[in-house]
Simulated scan of single mutants.
Amino acid sequence: MTQNPPTRRTGRSAGGRRPDPAREAALRQAALELLAEVGYEALTVEAVAVRAGAGKATLYRRWASKADLVADAFHTMKAAGEPPDTGSLRGDLHETALAAAGAEDGMSLKVTIGVAGALDRHPDLRAAFHERFVLPLRARLREVFDRAAARGEISARHDLDLLAEVFPALVLQRSLITGAPAPLDYMRHVIEAVVWPLACAPPPHTGPPSPDSAQRRTA
């Protein structure tokens, strides 16, 4: 049975207590460590609370479910701050690659594999992962392409959302297939061989067919 997407809890808890950033950070870290060690299915809220030295009630005051906690912890682990703004699309893309390479390590990869392997079996995790990680990442990269379009570097007629998805999709695929963090050289190659040429190419024609093309198809 498909569960409803988790509800993010912010501000004061249900009991009126203010969030404790240090305690929340400890719970996120415990969740990530256990996810890397045992995977999503075997991870329990009880084990996270024990490792962080907290009670289950503390955890549930901040996160609605295990899926909500894991998605939030994953987003925090992968968060890279504000989008780069070097003044050029190529520069922004390479700064994005540097930030991504600097965030990858053995534990990060194990966590990524653990989450990715559970997404198709857990709709609640998929919904939380999409809300907490996919949408913010897409928005961050979309801002890079929006600025490039505003500068006139690329056409605003491109599907900028699609362009924003190419780089992270290829980097994630490489990591999942090889079982190792994607190296910086690979990320740079993706930018120069795939993302940059796509962004600078003429946008595909999406309007009605021209009279000449219609005549060729009926000839």
Rank of each mutant, 00 (worst) to 15 (best):
A128N: 08
P123H: 07
I191A: 00
V70T: 06
F74P: 02
P204V: 14
P168G: 12
L163E: 01
R9N: 08
P6V: 11
T44V: 14
R142F: 10
H122Q: 14
I191C: 03
L198A: 15
P6H: 11
W63Y: 15
A30G: 15
L59F: 15
G102C: 14
A73H: 08
H189L: 12
R217M: 12
D20L: 10
V134Y: 01
I191H: 04
A101M: 04
V45C: 11
G106F: 08
K66Y: 10
H94K: 08
M187E: 09
G81F: 07
G53S: 05
R142T: 07
H130S: 06
L170E: 03
A148G: 09
L160K: 04
A52C: 09
G91R: 00
P84R: 02
K66H: 11
A57N: 15
A14C: 10
K66L: 09
P21L: 11
R138W: 01
A201H: 12
G53N: 00
Y40F: 15
A49C: 12
R90S: 03
S108V: 14
G152V: 15
D85P: 01
D159W: 03
P123N: 09
S175P: 00
R62D: 15
E143S: 05
F133S: 13
D68L: 06
P19T: 13
L172Q: 05
R51M: 09
T112A: 13
Y186K: 08
M1S: 11
R18F: 14
T96A: 05
A49W: 15
A214R: 04
I177Y: 01
A118K: 03
L135Y: 02
V166Q: 12
D105C: 11
E165T: 15
I113S: 07
L35C: 11
P208R: 12
R9G: 10
E143N: 00
A73R: 03
P83H: 07
P21G: 13
G117E: 14
D212I: 03
T96G: 00
D72C: 12
D212L: 07
L98P: 00
P208S: 10
A169D: 08
A139N: 11
R8W: 08
S13C: 09
S13G: 15
L170I: 06
R62W: 14
D159P: 04
R51Q: 11
L160G: 04
P83S: 03
L172H: 07
G39N: 05
F145R: 07
V166G: 05
A80E: 08
P123W: 06
Y186W: 11
